[in-house]
């Protein structure tokens, strides 16, 4: 059978599309089953809505929250904070990490410091952040910045210091100047580690965000959950939890994991995360 090249490619793409559709269906099915169980169990045992909401009431809460624009406002506030804090964190951390990683002595010297600060990343900064910046936007940005900064800087440092000296020497002997060495060798070489760092740091930041919003603000997903608790609005709480889960799943699986995989695979640097 003769097949024109274009035709073959198209059919293969279609097959791959089918594959990812099947994959998505396989992924979603167990979750739908879970919703099914929830829909059966709650009315069956006549669960008090103050303890756990029914599927219907959560759906109503969703419609209401979307209708009055509050859900979008909360999501927007949370995403803005995470986005801004992460951006700042990465912008400061990467150059610093590269600068520190260039010399093995310096990076060895600084490693304990980063180890110390990385466990504090995020949540442990909330009390002092709120004291310094007051309750609100500044404190939360500071917490997220911290969560991202230490992890990313540490991973960048690690990434740069694992680039073999021979590669640096090779580049230098091929005529690479300082700037070229940085952009052509150090940055790409450390990129897989940087991406891994961003993924881990964002994970901490996301948790820190929810915690900080419960304590220190009047808008955002964490705040939405915590206020609902005061009124025993379990349907709003569960809605918020689902939104948080879905958002993170999208950020992590559709953005960070593919990014990580792409950088790691592209250079054949199989590193474990």
């Amino acid at each position: 059978m003769l097949v024109a090249p274009g035709q073959k490619v198209r059919s293969r793409v279609a097959w791959r599309g089918m594959n990812s559709l099947v994959g998505a269906a396989l992924f979603v099915t167990p979750l739908l089953m879970l919703v099914g169980i929830w829909a059966i169990v709650v009315p069956l045992f006549n669960v008090n809505p103050r303890i756990f909401p029914s599927v219907g009431s959560v759906a109503e809460a969703a419609v209401a929250a979307i209708g009055d624009g509050s859900l979008i406002r909360h999501i927007g506030a949370s995403m803005l904070r995470v986005g801004l804090g992460t951006l700042l964190g990465v912008l400061v951390a990467v150059p610093l990490g590269i600068a520190m990683g260039v010399s093995p002595a310096v990076s060895a010297f600084l490693t304990p410091l980063f180890r110390f600060f990385s466990v504090l990343a995020g949540i442990a900064w909330i009390p002092i952040a709120t004291l310094w910046f007051g309750y609100g936007f500044g404190a939360i940005i500071f917490v997220i910045f911290n969560a991202v900064f230490f992890v990313v800087a540490y991973n960048t440092l690690l990434g740069v210091s694992t680039i073999p000296m021979t590669i640096r020497n090779a580049a230098a002997s091929l005529g690479a100047g300082r700037w070229a060495l940085l952009t052509e060798v150090l940055l790409p070489g450390a990129l897989p580690n940087i991406v891994t760092g961003v993924r881990t740091g964002l994970g901490f930041a996301w948790r820190g965000l929810i915690a900080a919003e419960m304590i220190a603000t009047n808008v955002g997903l964490g705040y939405m959950l915590f206020v609902a608790r005061d009124f025993y609005r379990t349907e709003v709480i569960v809605l918020g939890m689902i939104v948080i889960g879905v958002l993170w799943l999208f950020i992590d699986r559709l953005l960070l994991v593919p990014l990580e995989r792409a950088t790691i695979e592209r250079w054949g640097l199989v590193r474990r995360t």
Partner: peptide, 23 residues
């Protein structure tokens, strides 16, 4: 069966459980 459920619950994260746990 479990993998997607696991990923989803991991994505919700510990802290977001606090309000309902307090109830």
């Amino acid at each position: 069966i479990c993998w997607p459920v696991l990923l989803f619950f991991q994505a919700i994260g510990d802290i977001a459980w606090l309000p309902i746990l307090l109830i």
